[in-house]
Amino acid sequence: MSSGPYNYSYIFKYIIIGDMGVGKSCLLHQFTEKKFMADCPHTIGVEFGTRIIEVSGQKIKLQIWDTAGQERFRAVTRSYYRGAAGALIIYDITRRSTYNHLSSWLTDARNLTNPNTVIFLIGNKSDLDAQRDVTYDEAKKFADENGLKFVEASAKTGENVEEAFLETAKKIYESIQDGSLDLNAAESGVQKKPTANGARTLSSENAEGRNPSSCSC
C-alpha cells in the first residue's frame, strides 16, 4: 500500500496570482511536469494542477489553482483565494510594471485568505538577467517589509521553482505542527487524510443520517 494513490497525509491548497504574462502557468507546469512550456496560452479563469511532495517525512498533496492574470478575470479569480493555505505572488523581473502591481496583489491576498496563509513572493524569469528591470535587493526589501518569503526563480530553467513550492509547504506544515493552523477550520486550506478507518469514515457515516435537502435552503 506504500505506493497507493492515497498515500499522503495532508492536502494543501495553493493559489498562484500575479499580473498577466509573468509566467504563473509556466511555473506551475515546471513544478508539476518538470518541463518548460514555451508559448503558453493565456489562462482562462483558473486552471488546476497537483503534485505530491514530502515535507519532514510526511507526504503532502498540493492542489494548486493557477489564476488568470488578466484584469477581466479578477472578479472570478478572487473567489479562489478562499481557503488557500499558500499563496504564490509572481512578478516578472524583466517588467517593472508587474513588480509595481505587487501591493495590489498582496492586498487581495491578505484580504481574501486567512491570517495563516503563507504568502510567497517569486520573481520569475531569472534566466533573463540581462533584461532585468527589478533588482533582487529591491524585491527582497519589499518582501521583508511585508513579511513575505522571497526567491527569484525561472520557469524556463527550473531554478528555485521546486524550492519555492516546497518552502511554502514547509512553512504551512510548521504552522500545523505548532498548532497555529486549525485543521478543523474548513477554510484552513489543509485537509488531513485518514490513515485507515479513521475520522473521515466516521464523519461520512454521520452525514448519511443527515438529510442533505433538509438543510439546503
Binding site: 486549525d182 478543523n184 474548513a186 452525514a207 448519511e208 442533505p212 438543510c215
Partner: peptide
Amino acid sequence: THRRSLFVRSYIDALTGAGNI
C-alpha cells in the same frame, strides 16, 4: 449518492461557515 450528500454538506458548510471561518 454517498459523495453527493457529502458534497452538498460541504457546500452548505462552506456557505454557513464551519469552524472559525
